[in-house]
């Protein structure tokens, strides 16, 4: 076996930890007791990290990407500003990543989650569950329809509120690309007051989590559109390796 063959194909770019939040971010109080205090241990990537589960398009139900209808009673729909969220999942080389399972969840238009541990006084919407999912197309594209979530207060410092946001969970091709993040909305003044947003160390990083209003993609008299691209860790090209298949 030649040296260049020893590395498994498809290694993943090193994660830029300086770009990512630190574990310990005291302004977000829950991180204080939940952050590892010792340095992460570096290790070479092995098959255990560069492989990952695959999800087929056939597991996606017809309403999985429609939060306005997927929990609603027949003939009814969720209350709130109707929006389409769309974009692409890219890797750090700028390539669209196909077949990414994208899961999303959010509060309703009043800022209330459908969850046993949720205590905000804003009411539940009987027609809104708050979860959806889809799988990216060949070019990494995805889209879903929902209502714009409301901001909500949370117990942290005396008067902390989350900006309106949608949570996202992404699977790349390798388990080391696994990522959970949040999307914010252009123009929301709460973004810059939020201690969870503030865990992101660079303002460019924060900006990369803010979706833009896209009037050109709006469906007139129906739903406005927000464009939100997400980026997963890149994959090394298999230069100088025996290619079993294209990358």
């Amino acid at each position: 076996m030649s040296l260049s063959n020893q590395r498994p194909a498809g290694g993943i770019f090193a994660r830029d930890r300086a770009w990512q939040p630190e574990a310990l971010t005291p302004q977000y109080k829950t991180s204080v007791a939940r952050s590892p205090s010792r340095a992460l241990l570096s290790m070479p990537q092995t098959l255990s990290e560069i492989t990952g589960p695959v999800f087929g398009h056939n597991m996606i139900g017809a309403l999985d990407n429609d939060l306005i209808l997927n929990f609603a009673k027949s003939g009814e729909s969720a209350i709130g500003p109707r929006i389409i969220v769309y974009g692409r999942v890219l890797d750090e080389s700028g390539r669209g990543v196909p077949n990414v399972l994208v899961e999303f969840w959010q509060a309703n238009a009043g800022g209330r989650y459908r969850h046993a541990k949720e205590g905000y006084i804003a009411p539940l919407d009987p027609n809104f569950g708050g979860c959806g999912r889809c799988i990216t197309g060949e070019d990494g594209s995805y889209e879903f329809r929902t209502v714009q979530p409301g901001p909500y207060p949370w117990p942290n410092r005396g008067n902390d509120w989350r900006p309106a946001h949608i949570h996202f969970s992404l699977f790349g091709q390798g388990f080391a690309q696994r990522l959970i993040t949040q999307m914010y909305f252009e123009g929301d003044p709460m973004i810059w007051k939020c201690p969870i947003v503030d865990t992101v160390p660079h303002s460019d990083g924060i900006e990369s989590l803010i979706a833009l209003l896209d009037m050109d993609s709006t469906i007139p008299m129906d739903a406005r559109a927000y464009k939100f691209d997400m980026v997963l860790r890149g994959k090394r090209s298999t230069l100088f390796e025996n290619k079993l298949e294209g990358n």
Binding site: G94, K117, I180, V197, L232
Partner: peptide, 20 residues
């Protein structure tokens, strides 16, 4: 190199169950 940066991670939060 025209590289993009990985999207910053954000906490899954207390309501990760709703989505996952």
């Amino acid at each position: 190199l025209n590289r993009l940066k990985e999207s910053p991670s954000q906490t899954a939060g207390p309501y990760v169950h709703i989505g996952c």
